[in-house]
Design a protein around this nucleic acid. Structure first.
Lengths: 246, 246
DNA sequence: CGCTATATTGACCAGAGTCAAGCTTTGTGG
DNA sequence: CCACAAAGCTTGACTCTGGTCAATATAGCG
C-alpha cells in the first residue's frame, strides 16, 4: 500500500506548537517557552486516516484533543436519525470538551483526511491544574470562545438565506487561510458538498447551485475540491447584507 | 406606584440557593453547606424589571450572573441588523460566560419580567479559585453543558420542521416545570410569540398557526400567555419523529 | 378609556427541498 | 494497469413548507 506512505508523509506537515490552540495550555503546563521540547500536557500523539472516528457516540469521556494537522467533522444525531454537523476543525483547534459535563460523548468525530492529533488526559489535566494556576483559566477561555462560535452558528442557521449562509461559510474558510500561511487564496475543501449542506442547514443540491452561481458571478472559482477566492469583498458583502441585485 | 410594590413582592418568590445553577459554586466558595448564610461568591443581588438590560452589546465583561427568579432572553445581532435569540434563561441558570474570551459582551440580555439576579465578580471568582480547587472545575462543567445545549439548538435550527421545532420547545418548557415545582402542567409564557419564533428560526405567524393546530388536536390548551399541557406524550412524539399523520 | 403592543387568521408567493437523471472522480480488485 | 463499482457532483423540473403582506382582534397599560 504505497498510498499509506504518501499520506503519512503529508501528515508530517504539522503545525508548530506555537500556532496550536492549546499552545498557552502546553506552555503553562510545561513551564517553559517551547512546549514541543518537553510537554507535560500531551500524553500521546497519533494519526488517523479518512473515515476513522476520533470518538463515537456513547464513548466515555477521558481525553480532550488538539488537531495538529488535518481536519475533522463533529456531529450530533436526533432520536429520529437526523444528524447535524456541529463543527469542522482544523489545525490547532481543540475538540472534546462538550463531553465534560456528561462524562461521555453525545456526539461523534470523524476524520476527513489523514489527521494528526495530540491527546490530553483530562484527569491528568485537572491534576496539573492544581499545581499550575491559569491552566483551567485557559480552558475556560477556549470554551467561552466555542460558545461564541456556536451562537454565531445559531444566527446563521436561524436567520440567513442560503446565499448568505454559504457566503459566510466561505468567508470563514478564507480567514483560516490568512492566519496559517501566506495565502495563495486557494483552499482545498476536505468536506463534501453534502457535509457543507448539512452544516449550513441546506441540501447538497443547493450548495452546488450557489457555488455555480458564485462562479458565474466571478466571485470564486471552484473545481471539485479546489476553491479559489477571486472577489473576497463581494463575498463578504453577500455574507451579511441583503444583496442588492440578483 | 402600587404596581411596583406588587412586582417586588412577586420577585420575593426566590428559588432556594440549593436549586440554583451556581449552588455548587457558592457552596465551594463559602466552604459551608448553606451558602445563603455567608456567601463568599456573590457580590450583590438586584432586581430588574421587564425590558431592562442585564448587559448590552459592547459592555466590558466583569461579572457573571445567576438568575434567582424571573426570566431573561439573550440575543446576538448580525452586521445587517438581523437578530437571533440565543437563549431563554430561568431560575438557577448562569449567564454571561460567553464574554470571558473577548472581555466584552457581543450579545445583549433583556429581562422579560421582574427578575432577581446574583452578581459574581469574575476577577473575584478567579481569585477565589486559586484558594479553592474545584471552583473552576465547576465553571468548566457548567460551560460544557451550555455547549451541549447550543449543539442541540443547531440540530433544531438546521434539521427540524416548524412543527418539530415548536414541539421540542414546548417539551423543554415542560421539563423545567417538572423540575421546579409540583407541576400543575400549566406554564406562564413570559416571552412573546415573536420571541419564540425568533428563537426557533420561524415567524410569529407560524408560531400562532402551529399553536392553534396543537390546540385543535387536543395536545395543549393555550390562552394568550397561559399554556396548559394536555398530551405530553404526543408532544414528545412530534418533537423528534416524522409525524405519521397530519 | 383610548393607545399601543401583541396575537390571530387568511390569501398569496417564493426559496429551498425533493426527485430524477446523468456525469465525474476515486477506489478496488483482478 | 485496466475495468468496474461506488461515491460524489451537477443540473433540471416540479413541489411544498413556511414566509410575506394585510386586515382584524384583543389585552395590558398609562
Amino acid at each position: 500500500m504505497p498510498k499509506l506512505y504518501k499520506r503519512d508523509a503529508s501528515a508530517c506537515e504539522l503545525i508548530a506548537c506555537k500556532d496550536c490552540g492549546i499552545y498557552q495550555l502546553c506552555r503553562l503546563a510545561s513551564g517553559c517557552e517551547d512546549p514541543s521540547v518537553s510537554n507535560a500536557l500531551v500524553r500521546r500523539r497519533f494519526i488517523l486516516r479518512r473515515g476513522e472516528f476520533l470518538y463515537r457516540n456513547g464513548d466515555t469521556f477521558q481525553d480532550i484533543y488538539a488537531v495538529r494537522h488535518g481536519s475533522i467533522k463533529t456531529y450530533i444525531a436526533s432520536d429520529d436519525g437526523k444528524t447535524q454537523i456541529t463543527n469542522f476543525l482544523g489545525s490547532g483547534e481543540l475538540i472534546g470538551f462538550d463531553a465534560i459535563d456528561a462524562g461521555r460523548f453525545d456526539s461523534e468525530a470523524i476524520v476527513l483526511e489523514t489527521t494528526s492529533v495530540c491527546e490530553v488526559s483530562f484527569s491528568h489535566f485537572q491534576g496539573l491544574s492544581r499545581k499550575i494556576p491559569g491552566l483551567l483559566d485557559q480552558l475556560v477561555v477556549v470554551m467561552s470562545h466555542a460558545i461564541l462560535r456556536d451562537q454565531q452558528m445559531m444566527l446563521l442557521l436561524g436567520k440567513k438565506s442560503a446565499t448568505e449562509k454559504l457566503a459566510t461559510y466561505l468567508v470563514n474558510l478564507g480567514r483560516h487561510i490568512d492566519k496559517n500561511k501566506s495565502s495563495p487564496s486557494t483552499y482545498k475543501l476536505t468536506m463534501s458538498r453534502r457535509d457543507i449542506g448539512n452544516y449550513l442547514g441546506l441540501t447538497q443540491e443547493t450548495i452546488c447551485r450557489i457555488l455555480a452561481r458564485f462562479q458565474e458571478d466571478g466571485i470564486i472559482r471552484i473545481q471539485r475540491k479546489y476553491l479559489h477566492f477571486v472577489d473576497m469583498n463581494r463575498l463578504r458583502e453577500l455574507a451579511s447584507k441583503i444583496q442588492a441585485e440578483r
